[in-house]
Amino acid sequence: MAEIPFPLPDLGEGLIEATVLEWLVAEGEQVERNQPLVEVETTKSALELPSPQSGKVLKVHGAPGDVIKVGEPLIVFEVPDDTAGIVGTVPSDEAPKRRRVRLNANLDED
């Protein structure tokens, strides 16, 4: 198992912090990539942060009302070692042996 932290990103135009409004996932929950994780409020707007990856939520940082600075830990994912890397997907185990070509040869002369 690998622990992958996700720090609060810069939510745009040099914002330095955000206030947690509501967690939309709980520790122990399995989340998918792009699933909304948390609603936060900046000096500009309230917005939902989508998950950058799939994985199990190991820890969330900050209760509603807490201020988190950009770059500080927001959430930690736990990911099995045999899942995909940051890029790409795990290919299916073995491609089904689909075939449209039959071989036809006279090997008598061999």
Partner: peptide, 14 residues
């Protein structure tokens, strides 16, 4: 893919 490789084999065989 599998079919392209099989085609390659067939070209050699014939």
């Amino acid at each position: 893919n599998i079919d392209r490789i099989l085609f390659g084999i067939q070209r050699v065989l014939e």
